[in-house]
């Protein structure tokens, strides 16, 4: 059993948890993720390692409540325990030690991009961050992101905070500004956002990486459920990724595969809402 030692609400449907998992904490590196299962009947879901503390033996996860499992997770409190928690999985991200990076995080992607930005920052790189969400209430980790970024730009689709529009609008300005060299771009968010960014940066020939989030089962390379075409080759996101060269990723296929279980996800969520009597919630974040 893995105990939740800290819980914090970041926004309406975003929560942060610190979970006791000493073996995972000892090894965790930026870019990697864990898989957890809440209870015996639960699904295995992947979440990015947002932070880790070797001394305390804890892993921090940040998640948005989008469906049955993440809602159920959000309903747990400090002192509760998770049945399973395994990791660190996936490849650690490659970290250059100097240069200028632009980090683009959208909606669900702000949580997983934060540890990467922090790592870039600690490695001595200059990071310009652009974060966006549908509306101001869904924006998370603003202070945390500001602390590790040289500049922080905020956008909301509805204009309730920062720039009224998309992260790609701000990014375009930076791409066009020839006076400032960009060494690398990292984008994490909903698939449509990552796809737009990839298409946007390609003509400029700037290295762009994305962290993918396909459906997973085991997370160790044994099922192939997380397969994705990268540069025409089939890769398993859980062992070869989750970070890939954005210009090589077949986003169309990825989007399609991500929708495979939509009816079942809805069924599970409806059943959960009925049983817990908690209703409502926001199921279309991004």
């Amino acid at each position: 059993m893995f105990k939740i030692v800290k819980k914090r609400d970041l926004a309406d449907v975003s929560k942060l948890m610190e979970v006791e998992a000493p073996l995972v904490a000892r090894k965790a590196q930026p870019g990697q993720f864990i898989i957890l299962r809440i209870h015996e009947n639960g699904e295995r879901i992947p979440l990015t390692i947002a932070d880790s503390d070797k001394e305390k033996g804890t892993i921090t996860i940040i998640f948005q409540e989008v469906g049955k499992t993440t809602k159920e997770l959000g309903a747990l409190e400090e002192g509760d325990s998770l049945r399973d928690f395994v990791g660190p999985l996936g490849q650690a991200m490659e970290l250059p030690t100097s240069g200028r990076v632009i980090a683009v995080g959208g909606g669900v992607g702000i949580a997983p991009i934060y540890p990467k930005v922090k790592a870039f920052h600690q490695a001595g790189m200059e990071v310009i961050s652009i974060i966006g969400a549908r509306t101001a209430d869904l924006l998370i980790l603003e202070d945390e992101m500001r602390a590790v970024s040289k500049e922080l730009h905020i956008c909301t689709d509805d204009g309730t905070k920062g720039h009224h529009g998309f992260v790609s609008d701000i990014l375009q300005g930076m791409l066009d500004d020839k006076s400032q060299k960009i060494d690398e771009i990292i984008a994490v968010g909903p698939l449509p956002m990552m796809r737009v960014v990839a298409n946007q940066t390609k003509p400029y020939g700037i290295k762009t990486v994305v962290s993918l989030n396909p459906i997973m089962v085991d997370g160790t390379g044994m099922c192939g459920c997380c397969r994705v075409s990268v540069g025409g080759e089939t890769k398993f996101t859980c062992v070869d990724g989750p970070v890939f060269d954005a210009h090589q990723v077949d986003f169309e296929e990825l989007t399609r595969r991500g929708q495979m279980y939509l009816p079942e996800e809805k069924e599970a969520l409806d059943k959960y809402k009925e049983e817990c009597g908690c209703g409502g919630g926001n199921s279309e974040i991004g």
Binding site: N41, V217, D218, G224, A268
Partner: peptide
């Protein structure tokens, strides 16, 4: 994948078990 969903994750009992 097919058998892991069905056997380990007990997808044949979905939605009593969460994995479809």
């Amino acid at each position: 994948e097919f058998l892991t969903r069905a056997n380990l994750m007990k997808a044949y009992l979905f939605p009593e078990y969460d994995t479809p």
